[in-house]
Amino acid sequence: MEPNVRFWITERQSFIQRFLQWTELLDPTNLVVSIEKIEKSRQLLLAHEDASRSDLEDKTVQEAWKRSLSTVHPDNSKLIPGPFRPAALLPFTAPMVFLSVLPVKSLKSMILPQVSFYTYSTVFNIVNGNASYDRRPHESILLGAGVIASSTFFGLFPRLLQVRFSLNSVLSRNVIPVIILAQLSGLNVVASRSLEPLRGIEVMDKEGSVIGYSRKAGTKAIKDTATSRVVLFGTSAFIPEVFSYFFKRYSAVSLKRKFNLQQKKQNSSITEGCRGEF
């Protein structure tokens, strides 16, 4: 049985354990691990079918699980390209998200970040999506191109309105772009993996045997992934905006206090001068 599939079938984890596991998969070192090390890790897991992820005593097994889960697709046992492994998601998208929520200066400055972000997100979703159903290469290409074009359009639409009508309020400049970015990130997952609920994905029993295809399982997989993506990118884009808002507000208050203090000093010096002349 495919080790990664065996892991998801046998390992039952709490939310905290899954969160800690996700942080391990996001380890940047997973991007540079060699193919030779990945193959050795896979051979170790295949040779020891009873190797548990919770076995903390064997560090070799722990490292083997980490490399396997972060670099190999569980459905087809193929190596995930480095730029589209889980560990590459945040390093690649963080600059794009940051540039996407910056104040609009020109049409060119907002097109490139939006196109880059949704292109990478779409390819990432297709590469890491379920691969247990039949699909042809041209279907993925056409679907991906359509998703990129539509996501970019809806991502640019509020920015175009902002430029056209000169909207400079905090709501239109900071809040709405973040909300739209988060929602489009989830919709991007739904659209780029839309074939899964239509054709169904493989469903296995506890022994790893395929018992059929389920559209309901495909719908649930997309829903869970889309929800996590909305939270991930919504939080990533919202937190910097909050810090930036309070920083600007604190700076303005500090400058105002400093100005008032200088004014009081000047007024007091003038009053003392007048008294001395009198």
Rank of each mutant, 00 (worst) to 15 (best):
residue 276 G to Y: 08
residue 250 Y to W: 05
residue 211 I to H: 00
residue 231 V to C: 13
residue 104 V to A: 09
residue 224 D to N: 09
residue 208 G to F: 02
residue 14 S to E: 06
residue 131 A to I: 00
residue 89 L to V: 08
residue 163 V to A: 03
residue 231 V to M: 14
residue 156 L to W: 05
residue 257 R to V: 04
residue 114 Q to T: 13
residue 230 V to P: 02
residue 221 A to K: 11
residue 54 S to E: 03
residue 272 E to F: 03
residue 266 Q to F: 14
residue 70 S to K: 09
residue 176 I to P: 09
residue 271 T to D: 06
residue 142 L to W: 10
residue 253 V to T: 06
residue 268 S to P: 01
residue 2 E to C: 02
residue 54 S to V: 00
residue 233 F to G: 03
residue 162 Q to G: 11
residue 37 K to E: 08
residue 73 H to G: 04
residue 137 P to Y: 14
residue 232 L to Q: 07
residue 34 S to H: 11
residue 17 Q to P: 08
residue 125 N to L: 02
residue 223 K to F: 12
residue 252 A to P: 00
residue 38 I to R: 15
residue 36 E to S: 07
residue 241 E to A: 13
residue 87 A to G: 12
residue 61 V to T: 13
residue 239 I to F: 14
residue 236 S to I: 12
residue 46 L to Y: 00
residue 180 I to V: 15
residue 140 S to G: 07
residue 10 T to W: 02
residue 158 P to R: 07
residue 58 D to R: 08
residue 61 V to E: 07
residue 143 L to E: 06
residue 139 E to I: 09
residue 275 R to T: 15
residue 37 K to S: 06
residue 119 T to C: 12
residue 27 D to C: 12
residue 162 Q to S: 10
residue 205 D to S: 02
residue 227 T to P: 00
residue 196 E to K: 11
residue 192 S to D: 02
residue 47 A to Q: 04
residue 92 F to M: 14
residue 199 R to K: 15
residue 192 S to P: 07
residue 131 A to D: 01
residue 16 I to L: 02
residue 28 P to Q: 09
residue 26 L to C: 14
residue 247 F to K: 07
residue 49 E to D: 03
residue 46 L to W: 05
residue 54 S to I: 00
residue 165 F to H: 15
residue 61 V to A: 10
residue 234 G to P: 15
residue 18 R to G: 14
residue 262 Q to F: 01
residue 30 N to P: 06
residue 163 V to H: 08
residue 68 S to L: 08
